[in-house]
Computed example of a mutant assay.
Amino acid sequence: MVGREKFDADLNLVQSLLLDLSNTAIDTLDNSMNYLFEKDIEGALSILDSDEQINRMEEEVNDRVILLIAKQQPVATDLRRLMVLVKIAADMERIGDYACNIAKETIRIGKDEHIEPIVLLDEMRNKTIIMLRQVLDAFTTQNIEEAKNIAKLDDEVDEMYGHIIRTLLTAGINNPALLSQVTQLSFVCRYLERSADHATNIAERLLYLLKGKHYELNN
């Protein structure tokens, strides 16, 4: 196998590993919310156990990129793609961390009866998961328009975030006995909002990869 063919094969392997990491992180976030709604403590504990796996997957992507740079000395466009792969891997690892944080809040809430505003989190979860899967599809297909649409979805998630936080705070003011769960669900809301921000980050990285310049989709 000649040098360019070997590089392309190794690059495709790294991209495949990144997709595995991404799908695992997104599934973990989705499952963490399911366990919250179901008051499934054992399920939440399994989310905590999955964190090490996601960390290892990110490390493998990083290690393979470093080897490619060291052995192949890629040209500028290839180097840009490798750097984007590393940054997207970091975004996805962070989403795995948010899933663990949600699992911890689930464990803290335990079997207590959920307060009414929790139902609003399901819509926010769905929108966030749609964003993450869409941006992953945009990266796979190199679809610029799909990547640009992520900013609109992020605005919708931000609006949901503000509405849910206000609703939770009102519930806590009206019934101080609920403040503990209000706090925990506010954190969950924040973790979803941050996960959506990482989807936007990935969309910006794809635009940088394809256009060669930086874009800020949130502005």
Rank of each mutant, 00 (worst) to 15 (best):
I109R: 01
V75A: 15
T24R: 02
G96Y: 14
D158M: 07
D137N: 15
N201G: 11
L68V: 11
E60L: 14
E193D: 12
S32C: 08
V65D: 00
R194H: 13
I202T: 13
F37Y: 09
D97G: 08
V135F: 06
G3P: 05
N23T: 01
E123N: 14
Q142Y: 04
I88H: 02
L79P: 03
D30K: 08
F187W: 11
L168C: 09
N201A: 05
G162K: 07
V2T: 03
T28M: 03
D30G: 04
L179T: 09
G110L: 00
T183K: 14
L48W: 08
I164E: 02
K71C: 10
Q134N: 13
R4V: 12
N201D: 13
A147P: 11
E204F: 06
L132P: 00
I202F: 07
I47Q: 02
I107G: 14
I164H: 09
V188T: 09
S22A: 15
E58G: 03
T167H: 12
N218Y: 11
L18F: 01
S46F: 02
G162R: 06
C100H: 07
L79S: 06
F139W: 12
T141R: 11
G212D: 11
D155E: 08
L11D: 00
E204C: 11
A76K: 09
D8P: 01
A147H: 11
I69W: 02
A171N: 01
Y215A: 14
K211Y: 13
K71L: 15
M160K: 06
I130D: 15
E204G: 07
L206R: 04
K211N: 14
Q134S: 12
C189H: 12
Q134G: 13
A103I: 01
P176E: 07
R80K: 00
D155W: 08
N31Q: 06
Q184A: 14
I150Q: 02
I150G: 02
A196Y: 08
Q142K: 10
N23Q: 12
Q142A: 10
D78M: 12
I165S: 07
E113Y: 00
P74A: 00
P74I: 00
I173E: 15
F139G: 02
T170E: 02
A25G: 01
I107D: 15
S180A: 13
E116C: 10
E145M: 10
I88Y: 03
E42L: 15
I66M: 10
N34L: 06
L178Q: 12
K211I: 07
D158Q: 06
A103R: 04
G96D: 09
V2A: 04
E59D: 13
N55L: 04
E105G: 05
D122E: 12
L48F: 05
I66Q: 09
N143A: 14
Y208E: 07
S195W: 02
K6P: 00
S186L: 02
E60K: 10
I130H: 10
